[in-house]
Design a binder for these strands. Sequence first.
DNA 1: CTAGGGTTAG
Length: 487
Amino acid sequence: MVQLWRSSRSHLRRLLSLKGRNFTALPSPEASQTASLYKLILNSSDPRALSQTLHSTAIEWTPDLVNTILKRLWNHGPKALQFFRILSHHPLYAHHASSFDLAIDITARLRDYRTLWALVSRMRSRRIGPSPKTFAIIAERYAAAGKPHRAFKVFLHMREYGCFQDLHSFNTILDVLCKSGRVEMAYNLFKTLRGRFKVDCVSYNIIANGWCLIKRTPKALEVLKEMVERGLSPNITTCNTMLKGYIRAGQINEAWDFFLEMKKRKCEIDVVTYTTVIHGFGVVGEVKRAQKVFYRMVEDGVLPSVATYNAFIQVLCKKDNVENAMSVFEEMVKKGYVPNSVTYNLLIRGLFHAGQMERAMELMERMKDDECDPNVQTYNIAIRYFCDAGEIERGLDLFQKMGSGDCLPNLDTYNILISGMFVRKKSDDMVVAGKLLLEMVDRGFMPRRLTFNRILDGLLLTGNQGFAKEILSLQSRCGRLPRRLKL
DNA sequence: CTAGGGTTAG
């Protein structure tokens, strides 16, 4: 029966999709089931009732379904974990390792490390993990939370959980440390342990990139020199890393010379090289040069990717004008490229920036036709510009739309909207700001102290003493959570 | 999620 429905539905989809792209977004039965389950979980206020529903035999749980729901609840961590927990007690279904990884990621983001390690233990006792991937997630979150030493300790203790420390996992931990700005620490580990793990070109690239990220290109070069001395050859990734490093450090002439040198030496320049150059030169204002490279690359036998178009489109939006960006957009579509959400977000921002609010909103609608629904970033852009323009109501409308749809607001959304509440000096807006603050805390986001203070001041100045008191007690409750970086 | 390219404000 279900099978029948499914096949006739997909037949219908095929038929409809012939008539126009609008219909390709028609939800499949699986998608609509997922959507209704998601809404059910999100809107339930009674955990016991929810538990009963989710345990009912009518729902056929699969790891895919569970993971989809966990990802959609990403910006509502407590809800996501509640869902995960309820399903852990299902009489027939048992969580897949990938769902554990997602749940672990969420606990880490909420800085709930006790639950995190409890989940790791449960994975182990069920003999479904933890895997090196699990440890990569944990290490990354520790590093991002300003606990690089914890991140490294995770790596050291992997073996106790049955995971071998090999070159892969070593490279992962180096990269995690570098990306969180702890290059110094990564480099020291690298030097101490490179013999044991027999480091390769990837390890050197990771360290070089680490130095580049903090704009220390000479250090990166030094590392690469060492690499060559030890008999390892740089590859195209090494070159692209340095190229981007020069640009990031503002060494535009060095970057250009490096690019020319790459060409002269006939190293296999690829689409990443061109994308880096186009974006790098464009954003520092060298639009003509970026444009030349963009049109030249095809002659050189390298086809642009969607990312290349995105880089070029951003350059045109920022340093040229939106109309030209729109033409390049139409041009890429005509050539058969499928724009992604990055493309749309760039153009939507460009149009908003040029004051063309309505055209921006039209483009936001058009996204849906491309099976590329507006995402959090899209909404954040729109909300920001509407608030900046004083059209607070439209910003709030969009926010409302997000909450009811399947694109939950993230930390940025709340910050943007709360700032927007200070544009008009209205008492009502202060109350809305306060409510947003309560909601964001409820969803596992930690407002900055500045946000608390602004709202408190606002409420006190507009005579909302009672509400201010409530916010103040919320703040002290939040303060108990250890959130500041401690070394 | 073993490394490099597109979304975040002036």
